[in-house]
Amino acid sequence: MARPRSASHDLKRDQILDVAAQCFARQSFPAASMNDIATACGTSKARLYHYYESKDAILFDLLDRYTQRLLALIGEAEARAQRKNLSEREALNELVRAFLTEYESSATRHVALVSDTKFLGDGQRELILNRQRDVVAAFTRFLKRAYPDRVTPANQTALTMMLFGMINWTFTWLRPGGTMSYSAFADEVVQVLEHGLSRA
């Protein structure tokens, strides 16, 4: 009979994933070892294996949970827009703010999503890539509803990826406690969406 999991099991897994994401971002996924992760967690490698059978298993759980979180943010934004009776542009702006709020606390997880998905096995990689495609498709829907006269079948991919270009690489330059906060940057992205770079 399997031993029941403790109530803190998932919490400890979350802590391991946070530390592992930091290790992967700092050293790269191929260079980071289970021993490195265990040391950074302040535990033994044997204890780490109690939670994860391999570094690959850690990476998949990290990306599995993170992509599910991004999809949940989209569902929450849609529900909030309905509940608050937001306009389509306000709904898009809320989605942008929600993603940037998430990115502020998940920068190393986002690095793993951008850089390390390629190290997953075929089935796992396809699952994560499909979720990324779902996120992109959702942003396209929000954009089309917000700017129906501007977003067309011919340019919707370009405009969606232009928006992602503004927000998806913040982990490379935007630092909590720096000269610009994530909230202030979200305001700037919304202003560019609404008015371009013109002050008019």
Rank of each mutant, 00 (worst) to 15 (best):
Y103C: 00
T101E: 15
T152V: 02
R175L: 03
V136L: 15
L129I: 05
R131F: 01
T157D: 15
V96D: 00
V135C: 12
W173P: 01
S106M: 03
I128Q: 07
I128S: 05
V114G: 08
A138D: 05
Q156C: 12
F99Q: 08
L143N: 10
E104H: 04
F164V: 02
T140N: 14
A146K: 04
G121E: 14
P148A: 03
R109W: 08
Y147C: 03
A146S: 07
K144F: 04
A107Y: 05
L163F: 04
R97C: 03
N168K: 09
N93H: 15
A138C: 08
F99V: 01
T157L: 14
V135Q: 13
G121T: 07
T108E: 15
M162V: 07
H110W: 11
M161I: 12
R131Y: 07
T179P: 08
E94P: 06
F139Q: 06
A138K: 12
A137I: 03
L95Q: 07
L100D: 06
P148I: 12
T179H: 09
Y147L: 05
M180H: 13
R175E: 13
A154W: 09
P176I: 01
L92C: 05
Q132L: 12
R131S: 01
N155D: 07
L163M: 09
T108M: 08
R125D: 04
A137W: 05
F99N: 08
D149T: 11
R145C: 03
T157Y: 15
N93A: 15
N93M: 06
D134E: 14
A98Q: 09
A146M: 04
T117H: 07
D134K: 14
W173E: 01
R150D: 10
G121K: 13
R133V: 10
V111K: 02
M166N: 05
A154F: 10
L163H: 02
S105P: 00
S115D: 14
A138R: 10
E94Q: 14
E102Q: 09
L143W: 09
A154G: 07
L95P: 15
R125W: 03
F99S: 08
N93K: 11
F142M: 06
A154P: 03
